[in-house]
């Protein structure tokens, strides 16, 4: 009965693990004139993404200029809401999305288990991507990465006063001054909350919760609150948004704390039920092309796994930052605990 189907799909998503079909990754593909023609015939590609809306729209523009005649519909929301939306849609038999991208690696493990993804490997990924940044079965690959960083307004806070470590944030001098995104909404923050709770323990968050922090939703938002001057210091937030604001001339500086900085990997994949399969395939290959990745870096401030991408000189290269990696398989069962604890300490 459909009720059962709905419950199974919607309610028990996290637990119901269907046996994953183990297969070899398919052979890499290139963008051929036939693929282009087929994509043009479809005329449209729907991109569910968690990347900042301005960056995603810029990328769509680049795609349209390269492949005129194919419209890109950008559906941007926080990672967790993209996930919630695709879950709701698929459980009710709605197949809108062609290509999906979120910054929570857990999602892609889940999609893969559900068999929602169409395995395919663009030539570029096969040639240039590090092995651990792509699915061995070819279901998805790391389209982008970014750090969740501490940052502050240089005009509102002296460099000497700025925090150097995560523990520094518990100092009373930062009370009322901080802004922070929400793990129930942002995949980046879900990841960072997980790794920090492992590293520093939940009592760290309990103390942080008493600092009277302004709570926002998406990890794109804390940098914007800094730019507005609404708060002087962000606890977490997308590094790439901060880069973009620094490029615009806002007086903001990033802190890479001594304990390490959490990394969020944004995977992308093509959905099996994509309504525009050829356009999806083309767009997917485009996402990993040097042009797209360079645009992500230059305009978007995103980190790329493409070895050909040249980062702007003023950005600290990843190699010089102590990075905190997260294991999505360990994170997934912890999600309800993280949300419950977070609400306990931060109120929402």
């Amino acid at each position: 009965m459909w009720k059962k189907a709905l419950s199974a799909a919607l309610l028990a998503t996290g637990l119901a693990a269907s046996p994953a079909a183990w297969a070899e990754a398919p052979a890499p593909y290139q963008i051929t004139p036939e693929l282009e023609a087929a994509a043009k015939a479809e005329g449209k590609v729907v991109f569910y993404t968690a990347t900042d809306v301005a960056v995603a729209e810029k990328l769509a523009e680049l795609f349209k200029s390269k492949y005129p005649g194919i419209a890109v519909q950008v559906e941007r929301a926080g990672s967790e809401r993209v996930f919630q939306r695709i879950g709701q849609e698929y459980s009710t038999g709605i197949y809108n999305a062609d290509v999906i991208e979120t910054s929570d690696a857990v999602h892609f493990e889940y999609f893969k288990r559900q068999g929602w993804l169409a395995p395919m490997v663009p030539q570029e990924v096969a040639d240039k991507w590090p092995a651990d940044e792509r699915d061995p079965d070819g279901n998805f690959a790391a389209y982008r990465a970014h750090l969740s960083v501490i940052a502050y307004r240089t005009d509102l806070m002296k460099d000497a006063d700025a925090p150097k470590t995560w523990e520094d944030l518990l100092d009373p001098r930062f009370k009322d001054k901080m802004v922070k995104a929400h793990p129930g909404y942002s995949g980046t923050v879900m990841t960072s909350t997980f790794v920090l709770s492992q590293l520093l323990g939940w009592d760290y968050f309990e103390k942080l919760g008493k600092q009277n922090i302004m709570q926002v939703q998406s990890s794109t938002e804390p940098p914007k609150k800094l730019a507005q001057g609404e708060r002087a210091l962000e606890v977490d937030g997308n590094e790439y948004n901060v880069f973009r604001l620094i490029d615009e001339g806002k007086p903001i500086k990033i802190v890479y704390p001594d304990e390490g900085t959490p990394l969020a990997v944004g995977n992308a994949a093509v959905l099996k039920q994509a309504p525009n399969p050829n356009a999806a395939k083309l767009f997917y290959a485009f996402l990993f092309s040097l042009d797209a990745q360079q645009l992500n870096s230059d305009f978007g401030g995103l980190r790329s796994f493409h070895p050909g991408v040249k980062e702007k000189a003023d950005r600290t290269p990843l190699s010089k930052i102590k990075i905190l990696h997260s294991d999505p398989e360990k994170l997934e069962p912890e999600i309800p605990t993280i949300k419950a604890n977070y609400e306990k300490y931060f109120g929402t």
């Binding site: 919607l10 309610l11 967790e80 919630q84 129930g184 909404y185």
Partner: peptide, 8 residues
């Protein structure tokens, strides 16, 4: 309604 949804 956030993941995992708790509809009941």
């Amino acid at each position: 309604f956030q993941f995992p949804p708790r509809l009941g």
